[in-house]
Amino acid sequence: MQHSPWPLRRGTSPVDWCEGNYLISPVIAEFVNTVSNVLFFIYPPLLTGLFREYAVCVNRGVYLIWGLLLTVGLTSAYFHATLSLVGQLLDEVAILWLLMAAFAMWLPRRYFAFGVHDRKTFQILMLGVCSAATLMACLHPILNAFVLMGLGIPATALLIIEIKRCRNMRVVKLGYRCAWVWMAALMCWINDRLFCEIWSKLNFPYLHGAWHILIAIAAYSACVLFAYFDACESVPEQLPVMKFWPSDRFELGVPYIVLRNARKDFEKI
């Protein structure tokens, strides 16, 4: 009787991206796909500091979002460095929990269904759904990537709907930039997954690395946008505004939320 390979062993994942294995480093399977996760290590600590006011005055759960964003980078780097089945599952489950946590925290109440009317009940429901989805992800890992891509469709649709409701042009422009970056990222993912032979002949099998860079930008931008929409809905009296770091004049910088009416009270904390 033949035993299944140990899932921690290198190369046990059924998923192998277009980049050649161990071509640059003898210990890192897909070098470019591994190091291209760098933005997932830069943005979360920065955003944790920038969102301190938002966390104190609106929702401390934003720290969980940034922690999960960092976890996605860690697990993705581990997966691409080893191509192990455990690495693949950790990567995909981290993405799943990030998506579910964002929905649980920021989905507008007007979209609640199944008789759910309050945020806490909705979050408990999402926790149950996410737990069941995690189990299914471990049982059928070959389908995970396509399911996760599918979850991006309602998230993008919701983002576009909320952008159209917004009258702040600075927020609207960021929203459309986010949507375009997400679509560019998706095209990179699809091309690397389905048309590897063509890109290999062009000596550029690195589109999955481009996906990592683009999706990191799209993911944190979407989280900032939904945090802004949530603040406008839950604490409109605090007059939430979007600013950019390091200079507010540079709208391609890192966006974050400031609560104008909470500034004086916050500075005393």
Rank of each mutant, 00 (worst) to 15 (best):
T121E: 10
F122P: 02
Q123N: 06
Q123V: 03
I124K: 09
I124Q: 11
L127F: 15
L127W: 10
L127D: 10
G128E: 04
G128A: 05
S131Q: 05
A132V: 14
L135P: 01
A137H: 11
L139C: 06
H140Y: 12
P141C: 06
L143R: 10
N144W: 03
N144P: 01
A145F: 06
F146N: 13
L148E: 00
G150K: 04
G150P: 00
I153V: 15
I153K: 13
A155C: 08
A155H: 07
A155K: 04
A157T: 06
I160R: 07
I161D: 14
I161A: 12
E162H: 08
R167K: 07
N168A: 12
M169E: 15
M169Y: 09
V171K: 00
V171I: 10
K173L: 08
G175N: 03
G175H: 05
R177P: 01
A179L: 10
W180K: 04
W182A: 12
W182H: 14
L186N: 07
L186C: 12
M187I: 11
C188A: 15
I190V: 15
N191G: 13
R193A: 14
C196V: 00
I198S: 05
K201V: 05
L202H: 09
N203F: 08
F204N: 09
L207C: 03
A210W: 07
A210P: 02
W211P: 09
I213R: 02
L214Y: 01
L214D: 01
I215A: 14
A216Q: 00
I217V: 13
Y220K: 13
Y220W: 14
V224R: 04
L225H: 03
F226E: 10
A227Y: 05
Y228R: 14
Y228M: 12
D230C: 09
A231W: 11
C232E: 15
S234K: 13
V235H: 14
P236N: 02
P236Q: 01
E237K: 11
L239I: 07
P240W: 09
P240I: 05
M242S: 03
